[in-house]
Write a protein that binds this DNA or RNA. Structure first.
Lengths: 158, 158
DNA sequence: TTACATTGAGTTGTACGCAACCGATTGAGA
DNA sequence: TCTCAATCGGTTGCGTACAACTCAATGTAA
């Protein structure tokens, strides 16, 4: 499954081009972070913690494994993150009695209350992008295709 | 300068949508990392270190300040990173005699030799994206517009 | 020239993200 | 049943990234 690589372009040239592509993706990711940070700071969350809360608000209870699949994070990232969320009082962790290997994660009452304060975040983010729903959907689709192609090469997902 | 935010869409809905947008960007960035990692591992570089070397191969010598502007990284990230590159023997750091506050960074002979080994990387990345130059250029432009809009809200860049 | 603000690197502390590994639990085959 | 592989969560170590701070060097205004 080879791809269209113009062999006419000198590798020298590509040493600049390839940077711009991946560089643009990383730049956008960090620009997003910079917009999210002050908003989430008021909630006492970081962006990855916010993602976890979004998943829990939607599903109620998830195992660490399920969270990892949903957010593409492994236990090395999730374990300390969840410990901090638990320390902040937003989340409760308990061993699944039917499978003692699993740990279920659920929002506490404080975690549910936090949801109300988070409702305003998405609209501010949307406004900050300066794009409409259509443009964002299109970009999301493009990024999904790109990510899928990259994933096919490097197994990435956990 | 308000943006088109459809107030008809319930915030509830947005709590899922907004995740997908920013989430897709982060996902693509991490998928890129996963493809770069094994390639750069053979060179003894991480991706941010690779970016520094790209900049130095292109410009020969840069100050820490200039590197920070080019890569959007602050001294808190660059200082230890450059120290590791220096420890690996790819880079030389010296105080600028005309302005003792500045530190200039230059590739060593080993750093220059590394460039030859890095020439193959971009083509492999390009192939992994499964996209042609046109598609990538278009995506890059979209991401640049998005990043610019986000930067206007959160000063981000250092 | 002397205060004072500014600039440029560096350091510290916190939080991801990944690789590599560990221990306990569970499942599956001989 | 008994052994062994697979699964799940956790920990450690390393390398970013950012905020907040320090310190030396430089620029500027009185």
């Amino acid at each position: 499954m080879d791809s269209p690589t113009p062999d006419s372009v000198p590798a020298d040239e590509l040493l600049r081009l390839d940077r711009q592509v991946c560089f643009a993706v990383h730049g956008a990711a960090r620009a997003f972070d910079a917009v999210y940070r002050p908003l989430l700071r008021e909630l006492g969350l970081t962006y990855p913690q916010y993602l976890v809360m979004l998943a829990l608000w939607e599903h109620g209870t998830l195992t660490v494994k399920e969270l990892g699949l949903a957010l593409r994070l492994d236990s090395g990232t999730l374990s300390p993150l969840l410990k901090r969320l638990e320390g902040a009082g937003f989340v409760r962790r308990e061993r699944d009695r039917r499978d003692e290997r699993s740990v279920t994660v659920s929002p506490t009452a404080a975690g549910e209350r936090l949801r109300e304060h988070a409702l305003g975040v998405p609209r501010e983010i949307l406004a900050a992008t300066g794009m409409d729903g259509e443009g964002l959907a299109e970009m999301r689709a493009s990024l999904a295709r790109l990510t899928a192609a990259l994933d096919a090469v490097a197994p990435g997902g956990r």
